[in-house]
């Protein structure tokens, strides 16, 4: 019961915050862009025919993940995680939080849980957006019928899980950095740099070592590109997450000044 109260108190903090807006914007951005493109160029894109293809959803899914996996998701996590930890720094609230009757581990885990739930929200908004904006042209344009193909729920769920796992190292390291550094630019800069390095190293033999590359590598697999990945990146992803979280927690509890 007490943990539920603590969770609710942490959840309340994200209300009207920039991080909570990022969830909506980040989740809907790509589906809205694809929808807009389809509406503007519906004749050139032969939408009536496309909506009747058996792989309509598969193609839409692949298209949507391109910008999500390469840019939106990594950068969105870097920003949102930073903003969540900045809520305490910006409002000078660590000192008040650390004088409440809670274990340090509880504070650490609750904040992480909120970030992970927000990440799940992004996936839910993205999936819902993909479906709703996917069928919207058929409701707005008389020449376009409702997609003939069934929604490949199992495939979508599997890739959602894959991409969620891919995000974990980014969440872990950004959270650890965000807790430690008061200056937002430090975790943001480090995250941006690691994203660039990961993107440049996609074709590298040891690309699986780069913890920010997994969403991109998985997208390349999804898109059917020829890419060599030396190991199971989902296992690597979970391992990196565990290391970053344990390290982040150690730094957090051993900090001399707690606000």
């Amino acid at each position: 019961m007490h943990l539920l109260n603590i969770f609710q108190s942490e959840w309340l903090k994200r209300r009207r915050s920039l991080a909570s807006w990022l969830v909506v914007i980040g989740g809907l951005f790509t589906p809205v862009i694809i929808f807009t493109m389809r509406m503007v160029y519906h004749q050139r894109l032969s939408l009536p025919q496309k909506f009747q293809l058996p792989d309509f959803w598969q193609v839409s899914w692949n298209q949507s993940w391109e910008s999500m996996a390469l840019f939106m998701l990594p950068m969105g996590i870097i920003m949102a995680t930073g903003l969540m930890t900045q809520l305490e720094y910006k409002n000078n609230a660590w000192k008040q939080l650390h004088t409440t009757p809670q274990r340090m581990a509880t504070i650490f885990c609750m904040k992480l849980l909120i970030i992970l739930i927000m990440l799940v929200q992004v996936f839910v908004v993205f999936n819902a957006g993909l479906y709703l904006f996917g069928i919207l042209p058929s409701l707005l344009l008389s020449s376009v019928s409702y997609p003939a193909a069934d929604l490949p729920v199992a495939m979508i769920m599997q890739w959602n899980i894959n991409f969620f796992l891919d995000c974990l190292p980014i969440v872990g390291l950004q959270y650890a950095l965000g807790l430690h550094f008061k200056n937002f630019l430090v975790p943001f800069g480090a995250g941006f740099l690691l994203w660039i390095v990961s993107m440049s190293g996609l074709t590298w033999e040891y690309n699986y070592i780069l913890p920010y590359s997994y969403t991109m590598l998985d997208y390349l697999v999804l898109a059917g590109r020829k890419i060599r990945i030396g190991t199971d990146i989902h296992v690597m992803s979970v391992m990196y997450f565990a290391v970053f979280i344990v390290g982040g927690y150690a730094v957090y509890i051993w900090k001399n000044e707690k606000g």
């Binding site: 108190s9 309340l12 903090k13 910006k90 409002n91 000078n92 000192k95 008040q96 409440t100 809670q102």
Partner: peptide, 27 residues
């Protein structure tokens, strides 16, 4: 109960919301 230096307030929340955060923690 403590108030150390400047108050720790979440600027994007109302007074009631700020208090709710601590009301929940303290049950």
């Amino acid at each position: 109960g403590s108030l150390i230096e400047s108050p720790s307030l979440y600027g994007h929340l109302t007074a009631v919301e700020n208090l709710t955060i601590y009301q929940k923690i303290h049950q």
